[in-house]
């Protein structure tokens, strides 16, 4: 459970930093008056959707940290752990996911500059490469299964399928949000709404890339 505790410690640090700016030592019974009379304590200037996504990433992060915790604990709990040979295809898939993340980052830069053609092209490229990544992951599964590594054969194999599936499902959910952003970009007009949508998608994609790099590294090393 040390992985999840470490993750929660990071979250607790962020929460503590935020709380430290909320004047928790104020004596509210003495402070009568309008808001302007007392500094701090108002809502953040960030849009609510962005904070909502931040909260969601914290939750998704703790879910993945728990899977990693379970992985690390199960490895040493019995003598039956046989590491599996990761298919070479995973390297290619990783490259495709990096491309997808870069494309969404370029879409974000284009949206900030108000260049709609760049936004559209990069959103489509990002979505397309994400689909290619998912197809590649399924292909990797099939390669594994063909060589006899199925979930029931060994806990290491079971975790491989489980962890890649959880990551893939998160990306699949992200594609829904991305499709909505593309629908917003369709009329070709740069709006604040669109900029926010693209920014949220890019944030989510970078998160999933980072998570994948962590999970892939763990699978390779153990």
């Amino acid at each position: 459970m040390s992985v999840i505790l470490l993750f929660l410690a990071v979250l607790a640090t962020i929460a503590g930093w935020w709380l430290s700016k909320q004047r928790l030592t104020a004596k509210p019974w003495l402070e009568e008056g309008a808001i302007g009379d007392f500094p701090g304590g108002g809502a953040s200037a960030l849009p609510a959707a962005k904070i909502g996504l931040g909260v969601f990433l914290a939750v998704a992060g703790s879910l993945l940290a728990l899977f990693v915790s379970a992985y690390a604990m199960r490895m040493h709990m019995a003598q039956d752990w046989r590491p599996l040979p990761e298919p070479k295809l995973l390297w290619l898939n990783t490259g495709v996911l990096v491309v997808s993340s870069i494309a969404l980052h370029r879409a974000l830069l284009a949206a900030r500059r108000g260049r709609m053609d760049g936004v559209m092209a990069n959103l489509l490229a990002g979505g397309g490469s994400a689909v290619v990544f998912l197809a590649g992951q399924i292909l990797a599964w099939r390669q594994m299964a063909a060589s006899g590594y199925v979930p029931a054969s060994n806990p290491a194999d079971a975790f491989f399928y489980l962890i890649t599936a959880v990551h893939g499902l998160h990306l699949l959910g992200g594609l829904v949000a991305l499709a909505r952003a593309i629908a917003k970009a369709w009329p070709g007009v740069a709006t604040d709404q669109l900029r926010l949508s693209v920014e949220l998608c890019a944030m989510y994609w970078h998160f999933l890339l980072l998570v994948w790099l962590g999970l892939f590294g763990m699978l390779l090393l153990t």
Partner: peptide, 17 residues
């Protein structure tokens, strides 16, 4: 959670909740 963070009315600081 985000309601408490972002949608408090004017003057409702955390320590007045």
């Amino acid at each position: 959670m985000v309601t408490v963070l972002q949608a408090r009315t004017r003057g409702m600081t955390l320590m007045r909740m």
